[in-house]
Simulated assay, not measured.
Amino acid sequence: MEKNKTGKYFKYAIGEIILVVIGILIALSINNWNEDRKTKTYEKQVYTQIYKDIKADSLNLSLVINFYKQKDTLMNRILHDSVPSIAYDTINNKNQFTFPYGIRLITNSDNVTNTKKGYQLFKTFNTIGIESDSLSFSIEDYYSKAIINENYEEVRNATDRNIAEFQQKDWFLDLAVNHKLNLDYLDYINNSRDFKIRVFDYQLFAIKNYNRDLIQQQELAEIIKERIKNRLEK
């Protein structure tokens, strides 16, 4: 009889252990399901924010790209001696500083600023175990290019060089302070080889390099926007 009781107690204990293990497995499964749901929710929030950020970037890029495209058209006319001669007849005391073929063309610049709120969230993916895929690699590639473009200084350096040089010219004070048309200035922007060299130098950095990279960034932005949109719609 004692052996019978022992056998029953042993079977009962085994059954209790099995129930406890099943309970633990169910609890773990529910916990994993909850964690996975939270991860998916967070992932969706991050991609939604990145989509908004890149959309804003794309609009900003369009403005800066167009800014340099307009400059490129004017600079090509100067470099190829195709500025209408009548254009120089329109310059006067009031408009000489804003004259499109004057030194202002190569003494100002614009740069793009990228929105990185979503990217900051994106960088926490590794800490919560979200698996990297081709979309995440593309996002990393986009922001690596965007940050390089954001910190591009060569155009600004070119404008600084030009400003420093022009400040040494006798006509500069008339142009910048006295608002008085100086014929030497008119001759400089119309006939000077030095001015053309400076236009070419500015064009090299601003158009051939910087604006080209901005256009590539915008193209990549459109691709990623579409891929994120497809991911969110799944």
Score class of each variant (00 low, 15 high):
97 F>M: 07
22 I>W: 09
58 S>H: 02
3 K>T: 14
32 N>L: 11
95 N>Q: 01
74 L>H: 05
86 I>Y: 04
109 S>M: 03
133 D>N: 15
82 S>T: 14
22 I>P: 08
137 F>Y: 12
69 K>T: 06
104 R>F: 05
116 K>E: 05
69 K>H: 10
43 E>L: 10
119 Y>G: 00
84 P>K: 03
133 D>I: 08
69 K>A: 05
134 S>M: 04
17 I>P: 10
118 G>S: 08
122 F>K: 05
21 V>S: 11
35 E>G: 02
50 I>F: 04
86 I>D: 11
3 K>F: 11
130 I>A: 02
5 K>W: 12
34 N>A: 11
76 N>P: 01
41 T>I: 08
120 Q>T: 12
123 K>P: 01
108 N>F: 07
107 T>S: 09
52 K>N: 15
13 A>E: 08
58 S>T: 15
36 D>I: 06
67 F>Q: 06
117 K>W: 03
12 Y>T: 10
110 D>T: 09
85 S>H: 03
36 D>T: 14
24 I>H: 06
27 A>E: 03
23 G>A: 15
9 Y>I: 11
53 D>I: 07
37 R>Q: 13
122 F>Y: 11
129 G>W: 08
114 N>A: 07
130 I>E: 02
78 I>R: 03
111 N>G: 05
5 K>N: 13
10 F>K: 06
104 R>Y: 06
75 M>H: 05
135 L>Q: 09
17 I>K: 08
40 K>W: 01
56 A>Q: 13
3 K>G: 05
34 N>E: 09
29 S>F: 12
106 I>E: 01
55 K>R: 09
5 K>I: 12
123 K>N: 12
86 I>E: 15
88 Y>A: 02
68 Y>G: 04
